[in-house]
Simulated assay, not measured.
Amino acid sequence: MDGSQFKNYVLVPLFVKYISDKYAGQKDAQIDMSPDGSFADMVALKGDKKIA
């Protein structure tokens, strides 16, 4: 896999992790995330065969 392709797989989870950590528990956050869209929720689904 070329480095330019690899960054597409790495940068999205890193961005979600940053947003999840920065705005966790803040009601006046500048960005709205779904309740089950945090990085911790994604990690909890690791190994589940029914996710896309």
Rank of each mutant, 00 (worst) to 15 (best):
Q30G: 02
K50I: 04
D32Y: 14
Q5H: 14
K49S: 14
I51Q: 15
P13W: 03
D32A: 10
D32M: 02
K50S: 15
V10E: 09
I51H: 12
Y9R: 05
Q5A: 15
M1I: 10
D2Q: 07
Y23Q: 10
A29K: 08
S34K: 15
M33N: 02
K22P: 04
D32T: 07
K7D: 13
F6D: 06
F15P: 00
S38G: 11
G37V: 02
G25Q: 10
V10T: 12
I51F: 11
P35F: 02
N8E: 14
P13N: 02
Q26L: 09
M33R: 05
F6L: 13
A52Y: 08
M1L: 10
D28M: 01
F15V: 12
S20P: 07
M33P: 07
S38P: 00
A52T: 11
K49Y: 08
V43H: 00
G3Y: 11
A24L: 13
Y23T: 06
I19K: 00
Q26I: 04
V16M: 11
N8F: 14
Y18V: 09
Q26N: 06
K27H: 08
M42K: 02
Y23W: 14
M1E: 08
D2W: 07
D41K: 09
V43Q: 14
A44S: 15
N8D: 11
G25L: 12
L45G: 04
L14Y: 09
S38H: 08
D48I: 01
V12I: 15
A29G: 07
S38E: 02
I19T: 10
L14D: 09
N8L: 12
S4P: 00
F15G: 02
K27Q: 15
Y18M: 12
Y23K: 06
I19P: 05
P35T: 00
D32S: 06
S34I: 06
V10A: 13
K49N: 12
A24I: 05
A44D: 15
K50M: 09
K7H: 10
S34W: 09
I19F: 05
D48G: 01
D48Y: 06
L14H: 07
A29W: 02
F15N: 03
I19W: 09
Q30I: 00
G25C: 14
Q5W: 13
A40W: 00
K7Y: 11
D36T: 12
Y23I: 03
A52M: 07
F39L: 06
G47E: 08
D21R: 10
F39K: 02
I31N: 00
I31F: 11
A40M: 04
L45N: 13
P13R: 03
L11R: 07
D48Q: 11
G37D: 15
K49L: 13
Q26P: 00
Y9L: 12
V43N: 03
A44H: 01
A44T: 00
I31Y: 01
F6Y: 09
D41T: 11
F15K: 05
D21A: 10
G47M: 05
S20H: 01
